[in-house]
Design a protein around this nucleic acid. Sequence first.
RNA 1: GGGAGCAUAGCUCAGUUGGUUUAGAGCAUCUGCCUUACAAGCAGAGGGUCCGCGGUUCGAACCCGUGUGCUCCCACCA
Length: 896
Amino acid sequence: MELSKNYIPTEVETNWYQHWLDKGYFNSTPDEREPYTIVMPPPNVTGVLHMGHCLNNTIQDILIRRARMSGKNACWVPGTDHASIATEAKVVAMLRERGIAKSSLTRDEFLAYAWEWKEKYGGIILQQLKKLGCSLDWNRTSFTMDPDYYKSVLKVFTDLHEKGLIYRGKRMVNWDPVSLTALSDEEVIFKDVNSKLYYVSYKFADGSKGGISVATTRPETILGDIAICVNPTDERYINLVGKEVLVPIINRKIPIIADEYVTADFGTGALKITPAHDKNDNILGAKHNLKVIDTLDEAGKFVATDLMEDNPSELVLSYVGVDRFELRKKIVLDITAINLVEKIEEYKGQVGTSERTGAVIEHRLSLQWFIDMEKFLQNNPEVMASVADDTIQFHPAKAKNTYSHWLGNIKDWCISRQLWWGQRIPAWYDANGNVYVAETSAEAYQKYYAGIGVAVPDLADKYTGLTQDEDVLDTWFSSWLWPMEVFKGISHPGNDEANYYYPSTTLVTGQDIIFFWVARMIMAGYEYAGQPPFKDVYFTGMVRDKLGRKMSKQLGNSPDLLGLIEQYGADAVRFGILVSSPAGNDLMFDESALEQGRNFNNKLWNALKLVKMWEARQGATDSDQSNLTTQQFAIDWFANRLSQVNTEVDGLMKQFRLSEALKAIYSLIWDDFCSWYLEWVKPGFEQQIAAEVYNKTVLFFEELMVLLHPFVPFISEEVFHLLKEQTTDLCIRQATTFNLPDALILSEGELLKQVISSLRDARNKNQLKPKEAIKLHIQTASEPAYKAIESILSKQVNAESIHFTNDSVANTIVVAVEKDKFYIESEKQLDSATLKNDLLKDLQHQQSFLLSVQKKLGNERFVQNAKPEVIELERKKQADTEDRIRTIEESLAALN
RNA sequence: GGGAGCAUAGCUCAGUUGGUUUAGAGCAUCUGCCUUACAAGCAGAGGGUCCGCGGUUCGAACCCGUGUGCUCCCACCA
């Protein structure tokens, strides 16, 4: 078969992926093997594949493929998250484009559209993961709103409610006025903004001259003011406490009160209290028994209802329905007109925004469902302990701090959302406002009828008297069950699959969702399985562009991933993203890394071509005996390098240092295998290769593909099969166990490489063309060792002859390597000046090194204190350096 | 405001208990090569005040203190 000049990935990738699928290699069922389980962080159904997913899923695929090749029962579960708020926003936008307002639809009508949308667009991302080569068990694809999953969420809600861990209450919550729902604290992102600080004066109500000046960033809330607060120790205001002032525009009388909460040196030292629109004001209001006047509706528009009794004026009426930001401008204008604005300062502040819609968050008093986190954690002390004591290991470990700090300061979790897309809260209310929480409406009615002492009607459609809560649950209230419920561990507890696969082995995710998801999965894991959901958590960094900026749509610096796969091949994309991804750190993505990946694939391809050329050129044995011993040296050396790197990679993988593992393999293949080994065993022009050497070479190549496969699955599988007829696919091939490498053989190989490089350097410096042969004279105490590798040496430095000598050789230039000297003889006039210079530089370096070693050894305190092996090492350094200096000096003498 | 982390070659990063490290890799750079697997390549080379200062130690890139610069997380001083 003719192999193409360069490696062409497209067809190869599609074919192999289909083949693996056809063979069912990715499917897992429980058996006697040890499981290796990864549950994929479910992307939003609305998602499309981006760089973050690419990094994340490449890492998971590497882990799972390596496990599959190491005797484990590898199971990687795909799926998607219904992503309540994000998806609902998309569906609302889609409907708006079609001219349909959400408010014109019933809940059921809206949900029908949402499901339609989900079936059409949801899960595109899973198809895209196939392009990347992800070896997911597609039979297990899950969705957080699958029927069983849905039920499991209700079950958990009901259960936690029964345990007293869930309560309903009117609290200050983060309110998104765009999506019209409450949000948890974690869904609020604080952003720096340039705003203004308005100094507004409040006149005394008794008509006496003057008043008090208050600094505020939110003048639009003035009409909801209920008091002015100062610090009790603030001498400027101490006499004013108890006096009343007038709220601008509406002239409501409000008191001046004192509380230590107020900072005297901020603004004017006087704070206006608006309990309806600020968390701290609300706390202060409650403390001082103040009335709450809500002036904004759910969409952030002005409402006057609460103000009407006070003083409805034309002006106030003109504010009704005005948006909060517009209102701010209007009110500032209006109070400026009546001379109540003293000054306006520029102010840098922070404002909370909705993670999903970007809308500025309002604090709003509303009735919501919460989880009592303190109590929950008291019931589950392992949530904190398991991470602290490494029962669950975090990589990198620094994430442990973030985790424990958050848990230590945890607030109650608001889990209700005023949305339709999601699990509807299983709570029913009767006419009197009594609540019945149950997994089904039937059960809720049972409780209801029992409570009022009425017999339960015989048919469910005769049930009356209850209405279900309109709200749905926070998305994360379903995703925290993911590692359990993908195996039906909640809906069908104790089933064989859950028993076998849970706890999962490794979680790979971003640091950004440590609170949203990781911590909560650990909570649910202990609460419902009594076990952690995973053993290791590998946190990936964030993917940035090469300038270090976050990837974002606005910046347009987010590359088109599928386009890149098209252009470079999935293997190259996987290689590129991983090679530039240090463990646990952010990675600067640069397309040149993909080029490196593509080049590497091409290198593999060409090595394959070379070996395939030899296939037909095998001879029984090599006629030249010396050539055979030489090749045996190359084989022994590479076999040991292979086992050395295998051991190294094992260690790196255990520490999740995937990038370094890949680099080690890359260098083993490119440098050791291609640049050295293959050149060493390469037969001369149109010559035969010993069958034994050929077979060994193919074996090495196969082993390299085994090592490489998890990282670049497609090309490795392709090369593996093109090398020779195989009885298995690489995808499920089990890794070989290697012996410990022989250090002596390895160091002999290193020395040979060093000799070759030094001689080539000397050739270069004398402008010897590659084709110009030299005569080599070697002065060494270990002649047999060099005799054994003579043919490699002569081939690699283009020496037409090699002689051994006991003395310097006239009219040559000399190269010193370790204790040996190499004399290069050429027909060309050689210039010893640069080499002499190099030798002098080296000599100087060695001498100063020797001096430092001698100084150390001459130091009595060193000899007394240092460990014996360290002293021994220093002695050896001294001896070696002395030898080296002698060799250099002799070489210099020979040059003169 | 509180907490965590980082600073090593032009760039991105390794450097494990302080001692074969007067410091390594990849990419980039420079020089020479169209050598019959590969120019998406081959061979070779250059490049560092280990952020500054102080300390501990026989010995510091590594430990301690301090200064500077940067990053992230948490926290709504209106």
